[in-house]
Simulated assay, not measured.
Amino acid sequence: MTAGSRLPEGSYDAVWASPGRVNLIGEHTDYNDGFVLPFALPHSTVVAARRRAEPGWTVTSEQTGETVAFQDEKVEGWAAYVAGIVWVLREAGHDVPPADLWITSDVPFGAGLSSSAAIECATMAVLVDLIRASGGADLPMQLRPRLAQRAENEYVGAPTGIMDQAASTLCRAGHALFLDCRSLATEQVPFDVAEAGLAVLVIDSKAPHAHVTSEYAARRRSCEDAAKLLGVTALRDVDVAGLDDALAQLDDEVMRRRVRHVVTEDQRVLDTVAALRAGNLRAVGSLMTASHESMRDDYEITVPQVDTAVRVALEHGAYGARMTGGGFGGCVLALVNEDEHESIAAAVREAFAANGFAPPDSFVVTPSAGTRKISR
């Protein structure tokens, strides 16, 4: 059963779906103006809307059964991701019609798979439909990620980069999205794992995960402070060839580690894109593993559950494995042979049990489409 099939019966003025995402490589590079390479999940959030005569908006969650009504007051909790989109569209000069909205989703929540961006991007799509139907201006897809990011940063209060919203909006099936987070230039890079006899196994560690944390914000501040000390706009402007010279200018060892991760991670994204363009998918595995080691040792955002999942996947034949998402929990990606994903998932479950961790979930994902209209 798809998420959209769980909407209440009846007619709607607009129904759109936006997917969650996994990031193949490029972690914590987005807010440093760097490069990322996400792809969209087959799991999506569906938002449906009906215009209403009364002022204001309501949003009902199929997951919680809760309905939240709002007009100009500040909204907290899960509904803030919806209210934030209303707010940012109005801030951008759009007259957002009053509406009732319903949300249903099969994107795992709190797993680092960007369930929040899926809500934001699907909400924006239905509201833009209503704006157009009321005689307002369209909002091209390419411009929507920046507005959705602003809603999450300024309204919700999460200091995220633009990757999640861009992936949820712009990805294409069978491709990864190569995104330059400074210029917002994109390239759809072929990533057909099945054709290569491979699979991407997602292991949800079930370790709690949240972006609105002091740890995430502290790392962003450290990067911004380092950029100022180095006299660059963002760490994107330090390349691998100049890394040693840059590190020599920094006295703080923690800041040095943060900079080393971001600079080398940007290069790993570029190397991964080159491998995919050449059709050498297996070569991506070693880059994924190096990315995880950098997140573990230099950025210090992993936890024992994800480190265990990576180690066991590699021991049982994965070409590469890494945590994906903001860190401190969430999911691991493993690039594996298509006929080995079940045995690797079983080995991870056994290791989690032996360590006293909560049982993980695991599933295979394929690169899927971004924001799309649903016929109801």
Rank of each mutant, 00 (worst) to 15 (best):
T2A: 10
A3G: 10
R6E: 12
L7V: 01
E9C: 06
S11F: 09
A14H: 01
V15S: 11
W16T: 15
S18Y: 07
G20D: 01
N23A: 10
I25L: 06
H28A: 12
Y31P: 07
V36L: 15
L37G: 04
F39Q: 03
T45R: 06
V47T: 06
A48T: 12
R50Y: 08
R51F: 13
R51D: 13
R52M: 04
E54N: 14
S61C: 09
E62T: 08
V75M: 11
E76I: 14
W78H: 09
A79H: 07
A79L: 05
V82W: 01
A83L: 02
L89K: 04
G93F: 01
D95N: 09
V96K: 00
G112A: 13
G112S: 12
S116A: 14
A117T: 09
A118H: 00
E120F: 04
A122E: 12
L130E: 11
I131S: 05
A137P: 03
D138L: 05
L139N: 06
Q142I: 10
L143H: 11
R144I: 05
Q149V: 00
N153E: 02
E154L: 04
V156S: 09
A158W: 08
T160E: 01
T160I: 08
G161V: 00
G161A: 03
A166V: 06
A166L: 04
R172G: 08
A173W: 02
A173G: 10
L179E: 10
D180K: 00
D180E: 02
S183I: 09
T186M: 15
V189E: 07
L198R: 03
A199S: 01
L201A: 05
D204N: 10
A207Y: 15
H211F: 13
A218W: 04
R220P: 02
R220F: 05
R221P: 03
A227M: 03
G231S: 05
A234L: 08
L235E: 14
V240T: 15
D244S: 10
D245E: 12
A248T: 10
Q249N: 09
D251H: 05
D251L: 06
R256H: 06
R256W: 03
V263W: 04
D271A: 08
A274M: 08
A275M: 03
A278H: 07
L281F: 06
L281W: 00
R282K: 08
A283E: 08
S286I: 07
T289D: 06
H292T: 11
S294F: 01
S294M: 01
D298P: 00
Y299C: 14
P304K: 07
T308S: 11
A313C: 07
A313M: 03
A321Y: 07
R322H: 14
M323E: 14
M323V: 15
T324A: 11
G329P: 14
L335C: 01
V336N: 04
N337E: 15
N337I: 13
N337R: 14
E338H: 14
D339R: 12
A347G: 08
R349H: 15
S362V: 00
F363W: 06
G370R: 03
S375Q: 02
R376E: 05
